Simulated scan of single mutants.
Amino acid sequence: MLNALEVVTTVVVGLMVGVEFSVAFVINRILDALPGDAGQLGRSHGGRMLGAVMPVWYIGSLVLAAVWAIAGGRHHSTGLVVTAAGLLILSVIMSLLLLVPINSRGKTWTPENRPENWKEQMKRWDRWHYVRVAVIIGAFTLLVAALT
């Protein structure tokens, strides 16, 4: 049973890393290169869509890692899993304090109502998102290492 939990947790966190990595380094770059208002409209739509899914994914990943850490007991890799869970906690805190406020505004913007500094706000979101991606990559790496 513990082996199944380990695999499910690692896959769930790994998929989350893949989605967030692609948002940071592929999707947002594509959207930013679109002509006119298309990029801003795409970011708004992405903010609504992923803003509904990602909280469940982040909290679910954290819960899975915590259950793994508890179920693993005194196993030699428990420290790695606990540290990964700590990084996932950090990613949730970062999301709530730094990224969600910007996303909550951005997902409502249209070309008619967006603020003048909307690009600056998106760049700030991107910078924090890069840091968050690095944090969850660290958590994923620790979980993979705990499997060995």
Rank of each mutant, 00 (worst) to 15 (best):
R132W: 15
P115N: 05
G138Q: 03
W128F: 15
A146H: 04
L147C: 06
M122Y: 10
K119D: 13
A146T: 07
I136N: 01
L147T: 13
R132G: 13
E120Q: 12
A139G: 11
L142Q: 08
L147H: 04
R132A: 06
A146N: 03
L147G: 14
L142S: 09
E116I: 01
V133M: 11
V131K: 00
T141N: 02
R124Q: 12
A134Q: 02
R124C: 04
H129Y: 13
E120F: 14
R124L: 14
V133W: 11
M122I: 03
R124V: 13
K123N: 10
T141Q: 02
V133D: 08
A146Y: 09
W128E: 05
W125N: 03
I136E: 00
Y130C: 01
V135A: 02
P115F: 13
L143G: 01
M122E: 12
W128G: 05
Q121C: 06
L147D: 02
I137K: 10
H129I: 04
K119E: 15
A134I: 07
I137T: 02
A145T: 05
R132H: 09
A134G: 15
P115L: 12
M122S: 12
L147Y: 12
M122P: 00
A134D: 03
A139D: 10
A146V: 02
K119V: 08
A146Q: 07
V131C: 05
A145S: 08
F140S: 08
R132Q: 13
P115V: 06
I137V: 08
A146S: 15
T141R: 01
Q121Y: 02
N117T: 02
Q121W: 11
L142C: 07
V135N: 02
A139Q: 09
D126R: 14
N117G: 08
K123W: 09
E120P: 01
V144G: 10
V135I: 14
V144Q: 09
R124D: 09
H129S: 04
V144K: 10
R127I: 12
W125Q: 01
E120A: 14
K123S: 07
V133A: 07
V135M: 11
I137C: 15
L142R: 01
Q121K: 08
A134C: 12
K123G: 03
N117S: 05
V144T: 02
A134L: 10
V131W: 00
L143Y: 07
L142M: 14
E120K: 15
R124A: 12
V133K: 05
D126W: 14
A145K: 14
I136R: 00
M122N: 07
P115S: 08
E116G: 06
Y130M: 11
F140E: 08
F140P: 00
M122A: 08
L143T: 11
E116L: 04
E116V: 03
K119G: 06
W128N: 10
M122W: 15
F140G: 12
V131P: 00
